[in-house]
Nucleic acid binder design. Sequence first.
DNA 1: TAGTGGTCTAGACCACATA
DNA 2: ATGTGGTCTAGACCACTAC
Lengths: 251, 251
Amino acid sequence: MNTPTLAEPATPSFSPLYQQIKTLILQSLQAGEWKPGEPIPSEIDLAARFRVSQGTVRKAIDELAAENLVVRRQGKGTFVATHAEQHVQYRFLKLVPDSGDTAAEGPAERTIVDCRRQRASAEVARALALRTGDPVLQVRRVLAYRGVPTILEDLWLPGTPFKGLTAERLRASRGPMYAMFETEFGVRMVRAEEKIRAVLPDAEQAVLLDVAAGMPLLSVERVAHTYHDTPMELRRGLYRTQTHHYRNELG
Amino acid sequence: MNTPTLAEPATPSFSPLYQQIKTLILQSLQAGEWKPGEPIPSEIDLAARFRVSQGTVRKAIDELAAENLVVRRQGKGTFVATHAEQHVQYRFLKLVPDSGDTAAEGPAERTIVDCRRQRASAEVARALALRTGDPVLQVRRVLAYRGVPTILEDLWLPGTPFKGLTAERLRASRGPMYAMFETEFGVRMVRAEEKIRAVLPDAEQAVLLDVAAGMPLLSVERVAHTYHDTPMELRRGLYRTQTHHYRNELG
DNA sequence: TAGTGGTCTAGACCACATA
DNA sequence: ATGTGGTCTAGACCACTAC
């Protein structure tokens, strides 16, 4: 049975069955049919639902798993990925202590410096696919390790999806900020890209990080995306790299 | 037929058939049975050789392709990956112009500053899995874009595999250095990890990069590995990031 | 015991490249 | 026309998890 009940593309654009299945599953993920941390239906159930073989569903899920959108667990099922219970917390944070001993260090102490509504500058609007002047939230916070302020972050979030976000709610939440975004606002970050430079701090940044004005710092500019590559956060981090470094793997 | 003619592991460590096939193919790659850029045998041939089904070979190759060790080309075959003819030249170089217009920029002008034999310091020895005092080669070069010196690199290479490498041969070679390593020394880099920091240049570095002593620079320390995770190069790069940035993707 | 994902096979057909 | 990798199916069995 090689004629699935799915709509066949008209003429020029063919796409393998499993790609179409993948798109359908993605749509359900985005629509929130299954929430982060929850299991999605079994491969057999999905195969019946889409009228394809289990192997085809399998290949679709393989790709979703490779993109970290779902997590397979043998014997249990396939689960919607989440920033919360992931054994690797802070999935997007690549700054690690030089000793490599992440465990001994423990989580960072976090201080919310600021959280305010404002209007998007041209630059912020471009990064978030908004129009200049659209409402955005700006957050500034400091992360410290063993009492040493090490990361200064400025975040810009689109106002509409994050309506109701305040400094109090940020202070109240435990764990990764991205996990809170999922549970409180239904926004799941799936991909990000970073531009990294070496810079000097301005006067205010130097005070917040407790460094001299001439201290070189890592500038990490991140745009994080939710499903379908929709940008949902612009983040600028300043990292002290005397005791930590940004770790990257090249394949 | 579910009893392949391969040696079954004794007791505790099971491993799927396709993983064993993958290991065997890897060994042939490492042994140089097929050279970079050449095709490996077809899936059907490999299946016959290993006495398994074509689907099992396929899954093994899938993983090798995911790790960038081979490249599949529909209708043509599967080829040993190479740093040379890869349409993405300089696979391990993540520094890109802020404009994003890589093509307009063209390749960097390269100047070999130095190439000398020396003995491994404790630090270099540790990175390259050698013993302190073992012979190594050190290379220093500058990469410039449009006449602006932008990257200063120091490399340390183990002396034995790279015997015969001289400044002249480096200057004579076109294209990526890693491509030359493949053709001239049979050393193929497959994976690398980088530690990134923000630093200030010392006096000599400042001169070579034509920057002031207080200019923050990106320090990129890379260890590149060949097959079986054998470290074969330690490289320290200093990047100017006024017109360029280090680009990274987070999944 | 039942259900899940993981492995392995065998065969059919498709899309692409080359001669 | 032939050979390559790419897709899809169907069914068998294994390994892990939970009840």
